[in-house]
Amino acid sequence: MTMTTTTTRDSLPDLIIDPSPGLRLRRAIQDTGSVLWRDVIRTTRQPEMLAFAVVMGVFFLVLFNYVFGGSIGAGAGVDYLTFLVPGVFVITALQGAQQTSLGLAADLAEGVTDRFRSLPMSQLAVITGRTIADAMRNVAGLILVALLALLMGYRFASFGGAVAAIALATAVGYGFSWLGAAIAAKIRQPDMVGMLSMFWLFPLMLASTAFSPAETMPGWLQPFVKHQPISVASDAVRALAGGAPAGNDIMLTAAWIAVLLIVFGPLSMRLYRKID
């Protein structure tokens, strides 16, 4: 049994020895809130970061719709914009995950991480706080992309569908944020991290059903394309936004998010703790 002992110090926080699991959890949540507070302030001081988070989505939305829309759209069976917008949501959220990687790597390259590591705080909070801040920025970015889509003539099936689509895309981005965090904790050099992110981001993004249906791709590639997380998520977000039944795809997406969290959550923590 653990027993919490506290010692009062002159006008200072009590010294806590052997905190109970409940107290430890409460403090970890408190720390996550503090780091989140810090990351949100940072985000508002760097509006260009929000712009970066959105710019990829905007590019894909505009370029794919007007440049490739004719050729790719033919195989989609529906108006191409209707097909494209949910996929762009998922890609925008992935972009946010890359920002987790870059932001954490920048922190690790700065001295502030040494400070965090010397403080009586949950070290998990450094990553948790950041992933939550990035998810919040993702929501803002997704709303901007949705507004642009509306301007281009896209229509959600319902308001609820729009909210659900943004929520699911954000959740997918959150899962990938932990992959980004693991890469950052392992590599720690911002420019290298940026390069490495491309290696997982581009294949997953392009060999997916985010921009075009699997049926338009070569047969040998289709099994991968159909089951990889970006495709499953794109299909699920597409169904939610379009008001179609999506039970199976949502379950699969949730499963992928769970896998990402279970694998990369502990892994990024272990890598972060290994920093010497």
Binding site: P13, R27, R42
Partner: peptide, 26 residues
């Protein structure tokens, strides 16, 4: 600890930095 590399958040003000570290010390 005051480390060799200035271990503060450059985007935050001094007041915010102190507030942040104060929070983390509970």
């Amino acid at each position: 600890l005051a480390g060799q590399s200035a271990a503060v958040d450059e985007k935050l003000t001094a007041r915010e930095n102190l507030e942040l570290f104060g929070r983390l010390y509970k």
